[in-house]
Every structure is written in C-alpha cells, then in structure tokens.
Lab assay of single mutants.
Amino acid sequence: KKKREHFRQLLDETSAITLTSTWKEVKKIIKEDPRCIKFSSSDRKKQREFEEYIRD
C-alpha cells in the first residue's frame, strides 16, 4: 500500500501531468524516479494506477 501512496505522490508532484496526459507521455517523465521503479516492475500495473489516478 505504501508503494502505491508513493507512486501517487510522484504523480501529484509531476506538474507535466494533466487530465489529458497519456501514460506513454507520463512514463517517459517518471520512469527514472525511484518511486516509479519501486512501485512495480509491471508496466501494466503502473498504467492502471495512473489511469485510476487521472479518474480520481
């Protein structure tokens, strides 16, 4: 659960993310961040979390 919170925090702090951002764009920006790396090695899982984040 904590990894998820850190991942969401990373998304919060990434000012380039807007409601129209695509995962492909965002992934390029955040892929080097340790919170992104630690969250999951599964790209699909990160994408799902990102899409949920955008909906919230």
Rank of each mutant, 00 (worst) to 15 (best):
E52C: 14
R44E: 14
S15T: 13
I54D: 10
I54Y: 01
R8Q: 01
R8N: 08
E13N: 03
K31W: 10
D33M: 14
I29G: 05
E25Q: 05
E51K: 04
K46N: 02
S21C: 04
R48D: 14
T22I: 00
K28W: 07
K28Y: 03
H6S: 14
K1Q: 09
C36F: 15
R4V: 10
P34C: 04
K31F: 09
K24E: 15
S40N: 07
E49N: 03
A16P: 06
L19F: 09
R55L: 09
T20V: 04
Q47N: 11
E25W: 06
K46C: 15
P34G: 04
K31Q: 13
Q47A: 10
L10P: 05
C36T: 04
I17K: 05
R44V: 13
Y53H: 10
K3A: 06
S42A: 13
K45C: 08
Y53M: 03
R35P: 06
S15V: 11
K45T: 15
E32N: 04
R48V: 13
T18R: 03
L19S: 12
Q9E: 10
E51C: 09
R48C: 13
K24H: 14
I37W: 08
T20E: 10
D33Q: 05
K27F: 14
D33Y: 03
R35Q: 00
T20I: 06
T14G: 01
H6I: 06
K3H: 13
T18I: 02
I30L: 01
E25M: 02
I30T: 03
K2D: 15
R35I: 04
R55G: 12
I29H: 08
Q47I: 00
P34R: 04
T22H: 06
S21F: 01
R55S: 11
I30R: 00
K38S: 14
R8M: 02
W23E: 10
D33W: 13
I54E: 11
C36L: 01
I37L: 09
R55V: 11
I54H: 10
F7Q: 06
D33S: 01
E51L: 04
T20F: 09
K2P: 05
K2C: 15
L11E: 00
I17Q: 01
R35V: 02
L10E: 03
K24R: 08
K38L: 11
S21Y: 03
E32M: 14
R8C: 03
K28C: 13
Q47M: 05
S42P: 07
T18P: 04
F50D: 13
F50K: 03
D12R: 07
K1M: 11
P34Y: 04
K2Q: 13
Q47P: 07
I17L: 08
R44I: 12
R35S: 02
A16W: 09
Y53C: 04
P34T: 13
E13F: 04
V26F: 01
K28G: 12
I30D: 09
D56Y: 15
K28R: 02
L19M: 12
L10S: 05
S41P: 11
T20R: 08
K38C: 12
Q47F: 03
L10Q: 00
R4P: 07
K2I: 06
K46P: 04
F39E: 07
K1S: 11
L19I: 11
P34M: 08
T20N: 13
Q9W: 00
L10V: 03
D43R: 00
F7P: 00
E51H: 01
T18E: 13
C36H: 03
K2V: 07
I37T: 09
L10M: 09
E13V: 02
E25C: 06
E32V: 00
R8G: 05
S40R: 02
K27Q: 05
Q9K: 10
F39K: 00
K38E: 15
E32W: 08
S40V: 03
V26R: 01
W23N: 10
K38A: 15
R8V: 04
D56G: 08
K1E: 11
R35D: 05
R35M: 05
E13L: 07
S21W: 00
T22W: 09
C36I: 06
E13C: 03
Y53R: 00
K45A: 14
K28T: 08
F50Y: 14
F39P: 02
T14K: 03
K27T: 06
F39Y: 10
E52H: 09
S15R: 09
V26S: 02
E25K: 02
V26Q: 04
R4L: 03
C36Q: 04
E25T: 02
T18S: 13
R8W: 12
D12C: 05
R44H: 12
S40A: 11
K24L: 12
K3Y: 14
K38Q: 15
L11K: 01
H6T: 11
E51G: 04
E13I: 01
A16S: 14
S42W: 04
E25Y: 02
K31V: 07
S41Y: 09
D12P: 05
W23H: 15
S41T: 11
T20M: 11
C36P: 05
Q9L: 00
K3Q: 10
Q9F: 01
Q9G: 01
C36K: 00
D43F: 04
K31Y: 10
E52N: 12
I17M: 04
P34L: 08
L10R: 00
D43M: 03
R4Y: 11
I29Q: 09
R44D: 11
I37M: 12
K28H: 11
K27P: 08
A16C: 14
E49A: 14
A16F: 08
K24M: 13
A16Y: 07
D12L: 04
D43H: 04
K46E: 06
S15L: 10
W23I: 07
E25I: 00
F39A: 05
K24I: 12
E32C: 06
I54Q: 14
I54A: 13
K27E: 11
